[in-house]
Design a protein around this nucleic acid. Sequence first.
DNA 1: CGGCCGTTTGAGCCACATCAACCGGGGTGG
DNA 2: CCACCCCGGTTGATGTGGCTCAAACGGCCG
Lengths: 322, 322
Amino acid sequence: MLYRLSIQNRTPGELRQLASERRELAGSKDGHLKRLLLNEAKQLEFYLEFRSWMDRTAAHQAGERAQAARQAVPKSIDLSPLLETLSHRMGLSVDDQQALLPTAQARWLTKGEMIVDQEERSAPFLLLCSGAVRATRTLEDGSQQIVSVFLPGDPLNSGDFVLGFSLTSISTFTSALVLSIPAAELRMLFEQRPAIMRAMWRETALQASIQREWMIWLGRKTAEARLAHFLCEVAYRMQAGKKEFDEFEFPLTQGELADILGLSTVHVNRVLQQLRSKKLVELSQGRLSIRNRPGLYEAAEFDPRYLEVANTTQSSVATGAR
Amino acid sequence: MLYRLSIQNRTPGELRQLASERRELAGSKDGHLKRLLLNEAKQLEFYLEFRSWMDRTAAHQAGERAQAARQAVPKSIDLSPLLETLSHRMGLSVDDQQALLPTAQARWLTKGEMIVDQEERSAPFLLLCSGAVRATRTLEDGSQQIVSVFLPGDPLNSGDFVLGFSLTSISTFTSALVLSIPAAELRMLFEQRPAIMRAMWRETALQASIQREWMIWLGRKTAEARLAHFLCEVAYRMQAGKKEFDEFEFPLTQGELADILGLSTVHVNRVLQQLRSKKLVELSQGRLSIRNRPGLYEAAEFDPRYLEVANTTQSSVATGAR
DNA sequence: CGGCCGTTTGAGCCACATCAACCGGGGTGG
DNA sequence: CCACCCCGGTTGATGTGGCTCAAACGGCCG
């Protein structure tokens, strides 16, 4: 599959080359295989186009914001999680992607910034490109519960979008790049391209599935299993499409973990040490390493199927090689 | 609005009369008002038709099952919650309802019966007509967590339907009547009537919103607040469309409540007594009476907005009288 | 009449909360 | 350049909400 080739690291030249190779190869085939190759070429070309658009619009804006906040300017962002999600998980064709993305505006956010405030009505549709984001509810007594965590590629408010409002705030864990699609434009796209509406519905359902899983551990599991389970989930969602990797950036503080797991900061700390002493994970200065994945999965009773989407759409044919 | 008139208690003759009155009245009006009246007439006629269909197919089947299980045969079922949901919450036009419902098969279930088993793939789409239903996950150690409770009018698997599978089982609390719509037929309807797909998406989002709320109390609230909140939610969802009523059938056992709230049976019992002694609610032999609604809302920090749907669709015009 | 299911009550215990103090690093201001 | 501080992590002491185990009770059904 396309994204297996880690397109992110290729120069535009290489990508163009890859695309034309595929077109050429397609000439000598026919039927299903031909369509598949042409589709890949199209996807590559679109990726190129999108990347350069992104570099033009997002990067310089990033520069401004970074200066203001005195942060390092992120170099070119890795767009593959986003595109991976769009094509595989949402099952959108290249055409659909081409219809959807150009209506978006890119928006850079700094660490801890609020994107949508609790109680706000009708925001634009939001799609996370890079960084990590949370949805939170703050209670009267000041305590917080984080109800979702979003990783690159995730839509931030697919559910709120149909309901027309939301009672949670959405804010960033880290600096982040968000694509914002105006509500009116998206609603027009729904008329023309039912696949897009279906994709959003599916995303809403997937998020509900994740929340269901959280409810289960919140209700029935011990602190250690909860933490382990959450780490499993994040590790699994991060690796989507890429080969397994057992060490990565993990920017959440223990306090934030506590707000996810429904625990106190202190207890999170102690449980983290238990996991460490069992040689399951290592977590320090913003990096998480998984030392023993099977062991961790077991401690968490983690069954990743709830994160899966059954491929029922036409695109499952095109991406079946997966 | 239509359903305010408690159509359930009317004889077919009265309904037919009401419908023709509306048509007549419509003759003398025009524009928006005329459309509104005609629409109501249409809805009434459809209700009639649907009710007689239901009586033909469902009732005799109910008879059989009831004999087998030696239960009382339920007389004609109250269809208003279902139709109320379809038109108001889902925002479906009468045409859409007429397209959707006739593809359904009615299915009678007895108390405690399983409808969809954990891990099952691709069930038909299910819509609850009467009774109460739960979605459950059973863990390895035998403990259970109930992740959703469904009341008449609710779809049972709108989320699972797009995802193509589910990891929870769905089973009844009480005897229940479920409409089952074959997946293939529904998918065809999506093509022809985007409003139906949108309605399903919306339902998925609504369910996600409810689950979010559950996560919040599971994570951050005390047993008393959890229980109070759940009771508020059920009371609120039951009354949808009808005038406030503070006493109703509540068939859940304390053990089942425990599985919802993530508590032990024993503790549910004690907390229930606290609420009783505070004169907030009374719960015994399957009936719940709310003694002090404001007090209960306060104890639960209950804010019903998460159960609301913002009316953004065209049908909000037709039903705006609400 | 006996058995079963749901509810009720009591006793003891443990997981996790709360409070409080201390540590270490990175950024800030003087 | 150093002193400070603030934030995040770590550690200990102590309290408690809710669990578990166990037994008794009442209604319902066979």
